[in-house]
Design a protein around this nucleic acid. Structure first.
Lengths: 84, 84, 84, 84
DNA sequence: AACGCATAAGTAAGAC
DNA sequence: GTCTTACTTATGCGTT
């Protein structure tokens, strides 16, 4: 493919390096935020809430109500199909 | 279970709501960063680099780094095992 | 700690190597089974079932009925607490 | 969605049940192997090795292996990019 | 018994 | 559009 000639083209090398560094920096930030989230869960746990359930709450709030209901209905159907 | 009595305790409700909102805000930020990363890939692609290759480069660099960290951790564990 | 002296004791070395190999072999087998499970999901998907829901079915069957109900009740309480 | 009509179709019910059982059986086997691995660790611990260290050794070996594979994959991608 | 870690499951994005 | 691969989330295990 035709990406800029690497290895014989210092300008392209520099450019690529720059892209890679930007990505790595962003990934670093993302990781930091993930840690912050974990901290919130651990704080909430330490004051007595059930972290597992709170995770479900967060997830459900993200889902559209319709989707939620459709999924619940399908699950119900399958459970009956397998005899539960 | 001994989580704060919810339902008859507006203070606990408010607290839980606050935790949930903090989490949602943080997840929002995380999502934004993930989008930024995708944008970098698309930018780099648009100037002629092969995104797939760059992804592998980033991955490899990360693995190398982790490898070094794992080695250091192992050494550390050895030292502790030996009483240092 | 007092694990057998490694590095100056070839018997201990051999023993450790043997343990490590046993573990690696077992992990290999575990990986194979995980692949088999994935294959079943993809087969069931190919004949029209919703793999995501089937996963939930499997998970729910594993849970005790009581636990299931207790969890559902708590989830409900939390959802109300945050105004859903 | 177009999954087989469940609930009014005993053939589909039977099929789903069969899939679920296959999965459950496979998960059982996987669980057994996980137990075997734990046993090896406990055996090795009982003869004086430090399980924590051995875990790290296993992990490191795995990472090294993955590293090599990732490198090979990158090389492969380069070659393809260049038309080989 | 709680805490953090490490593995495993589930979900979503990207390649072909 | 399918299919795989990568990332994220979640659970369980070992440790303190």
């Amino acid at each position: 493919m035709n990406q800029p000639g690497i290895g014989h083209n210092s300008a392209a090398n520099a450019r690529l390096t720059s892209f890679v560094q930007r990505i790595e920096k962003l990934e670093e930030e993302k990781k930091t935020i993930a840690e912050d989230i974990r901290e919130v869960y651990s704080e909430l746990k330490s004051v007595g809430f059930d972290a597992k359930i709170v995770r479900k709450v967060v997830k459900l709030r993200k889902m559209d109500k319709e989707d939620r209901e459709a999924e619940a209905a399908l699950l119900d159907t399958y459970l009956k199909a397998v005899g539960c």
